[in-house]
């Protein structure tokens, strides 16, 4: 599913976080949003599933299209949008009162959708397999999700997002709280997810962006009051090997700030 962002502006009260970003994100590919802290990349990500506006005083203007549907058209329901777009957060956040299986099925339960027993079992196995976690947890599906290691918890969160079969998966620095081995597992997983999903990942880790991303968007801000704008957008190879903008070159070479 292609994501078309047109003239997107996002604010926290009077403070602008994203300034006039237009960007087309390719389907079945991994797109990385990179840039210094505070450049608005996480905010931009949270505009793609309308999570930005849950913050009091937050405001969005502009257009985000999933294929042809504008998520911000007046009659669009933000709750329904979020069901179609999966999200994985910086810190693993499985529900502590739920088992591993219940965590995977949490989306259905929270949306009030009933699944038959076989459907539930199939969904759990399918989602956990897709998140490369099935073989590690298949014998303890009934134990608490918070009993897993950090990396496993994050893959459980990915499984929870995948269970609802979203077309788009948004990941907000999904590895920043994980050790290198767990990070490796998630990066490997990203390579498989891109075959069927449109993945957008925010990362501070440039080598990670280089390893996992097909497309890279570099955002920057001229001053804290202005909000982040899109500096350059292109394929990973182009961005890392021949960036057109000097700002991009400076950032990937570590000369920024």
């Amino acid at each position: 599913m292609t994501i078309k962002i047109e003239n997107l502006n996002a604010y926290y009260g009077a403070l602008q976080a994203v300034a006039d970003v237009s960007l087309t994100i390719q389907e079945c590919a991994v797109t990385a949003l990179i840039g210094a802290s505070g450049c608005g990349k996480s905010t931009l990500l949270r505009c793609i599933n309308r999570m930005h506006e849950i913050i009091p005083g937050a405001l969005v203007s502009g257009v985000v299209r999933l294929n042809e549907t504008n998520l911000y058209e007046p009659q669009a329901d933000p709750v329904a949008v979020r069901a179609r777009v999966g999200m994985v957060f910086q810190r693993p956040n499985p529900f502590p009162t739920m088992s591993i299986a219940e965590n995977v099925l949490a989306g259905f339960r929270l949306r009030g959708e009933r699944l038959s027993k076989t459907e539930s079992q199939e969904t759990v196995e399918h989602a956990l397999s897709a998140a490369n976690l099935w073989s590690e947890v298949k014998d303890r599906l009934k134990s608490p999700g918070t009993g897993l290691s950090g990396g496993q918890q994050q893959r459980l969160c990915i499984a929870r997002a995948l269970a609802s079969r979203p077309d788009v998966l948004l990941m907000d620095e999904p590895c920043s709280a994980l050790d290198p081995a767990s990070t490796g597992a998630i990066e490997e997983l990203l390579g498989e997810l891109r075959l069927a999903h449109t993945v957008v990942i925010v990362t501070h880790n440039l080598s990670q962006a280089m390893r996992v991303a097909d497309q890279v968007a570099f955002m920057a801000t001229t001053s804290a009051a202005n909000g982040g704008h899109l500096v350059e957008y292109g394929s990973s190879t182009q961005m890392f090997d021949h960036p057109a903008q000097s700002a991009t070159q400076d950032y990937i070479a570590g000369r920024f700030g």
Partner: peptide, 18 residues
């Protein structure tokens, strides 16, 4: 934790359900 509420909302749940 706010993260748990966010996780619920991000799954497409209405606030009362979260």
């Amino acid at each position: 934790p706010a993260e748990l509420k966010e996780a619920g909302l991000a799954l497409g749940a209405p606030q009362w359900s979260v």
